[in-house]
Simulated assay, not measured.
Amino acid sequence: MADIALPPPAPFLALPVEPPIPWNRWLQSFETFILAVGLTGMSAARKKALLLHCLGVEGQRVLGALESGTTSNYDTAVELLTAHFAAPQSVLLQRFLFRQRHQLPGESVQQTDDLSLSRAITIAVRIESAAACASALTKQQIIADCPAPSPSPTISVTAQPG
Score class of each variant (00 low, 15 high):
Ala87Tyr: 04
Gln94Phe: 02
His84Pro: 03
Thr82Leu: 09
Ala87Trp: 06
Pro88Tyr: 06
Ser108Cys: 10
Gln111Lys: 05
Gly106Asn: 09
Ser90Val: 03
Pro105Gly: 00
Phe85Arg: 01
Asp75Glu: 15
Phe98Asn: 05
Arg95Phe: 10
Val109Arg: 09
His102Glu: 11
Leu92Phe: 09
His84Cys: 10
Phe85Ile: 04
Tyr74Asn: 02
Val91Trp: 06
Gln100Ala: 13
Glu107Lys: 03
Ser108Pro: 00
Ser116Trp: 01
Phe96Ser: 03
Tyr74Gly: 09
Phe96Gln: 09
Gln103Ala: 05
Pro105Glu: 05
Ser108Asn: 08
Glu79Met: 08
Gln94Asn: 14
Ala86Val: 07
Ser118Gly: 02
Leu104Gly: 02
Thr76Leu: 14
Gln110Val: 10
Ala77Gln: 10
Arg95Ser: 06
Thr76Tyr: 11
Gln94Leu: 14
Thr82Ile: 08
His102Thr: 08
Pro105Ser: 01
Asp114Val: 00
Ala86Phe: 00
His84Thr: 01
Arg101Phe: 03
Ala83Thr: 09
Arg99Ser: 14
Thr82Pro: 07
Asp113Phe: 03
Leu104Tyr: 04
Gln103Val: 12
Val91Pro: 01
Ala120Arg: 10
Ser118Leu: 12
Ala86His: 04
Val78Ser: 09
Ser118Arg: 12
Tyr74Leu: 12
Gln100Lys: 12
Leu115Tyr: 11
Asp114Ile: 00
Val91Gly: 01
His84Met: 06
Leu117Trp: 09
His102Trp: 10
Leu81His: 07
Ser90Ala: 05
Ser108Lys: 12
His84Lys: 11
Gln111His: 07
Ala83Arg: 15
His102Gly: 01
Gly106Phe: 06
Gln110Ile: 06
Gln110Cys: 01
Pro88Phe: 03
Thr82Trp: 10
Leu115Lys: 08
Val109Pro: 00
Phe98Lys: 03
Gln89Met: 12
Leu104Trp: 00
Leu92Trp: 10
Gln111Ser: 08
Arg99Gln: 13
Phe85Gln: 05
Gly106Gln: 06
Arg101Asp: 07
Thr112Glu: 13
Gln89Lys: 15
Gly106Val: 04
Tyr74Glu: 05
Leu81Gln: 10
Asp75Pro: 04
Ala87Val: 11
Leu80Ala: 00
Leu104Cys: 04
Phe98Val: 04
Ala120Val: 08
Thr82Gly: 14
Pro88Gly: 05
Leu92Val: 13
Leu117Ala: 07
Ser118Ile: 11
Arg95Cys: 02
Leu81Gly: 06
Val78Tyr: 06
Leu81Ser: 06
Gln103Thr: 07
Leu92Ala: 13
Asp75Ala: 15
Phe96His: 13
Leu117Asp: 04
Leu97Asn: 13
Glu79Phe: 04
Gln103Phe: 03
His84Leu: 03
Gln110Trp: 01
Tyr74Gln: 11
Leu117Tyr: 08
Ser90Gly: 11
Phe96Ile: 14
Ala83His: 09
Phe85Gly: 06
Leu115Asn: 04
Val91Phe: 12
Ala83Asp: 15
Arg95Ala: 14
Thr76Lys: 15
Ala120Asp: 02
Gln100His: 05
Thr82Gln: 11
Leu115Ile: 14
Ser118Asn: 12
Pro88Trp: 04
Tyr74Cys: 07
Asp113Gly: 13
Val78Trp: 07
Ser90Asp: 15
Phe96Glu: 01
Ala77Gly: 14
Pro88Cys: 07
Gln89Gly: 06
Gln111Tyr: 00
Phe85Cys: 03
Asp114Leu: 12
Val109His: 05
Gln100Val: 03
Pro105Ala: 04
Leu81Tyr: 11
Arg101Pro: 00
Gln100Arg: 13
Leu80Tyr: 09
Arg119Gly: 08
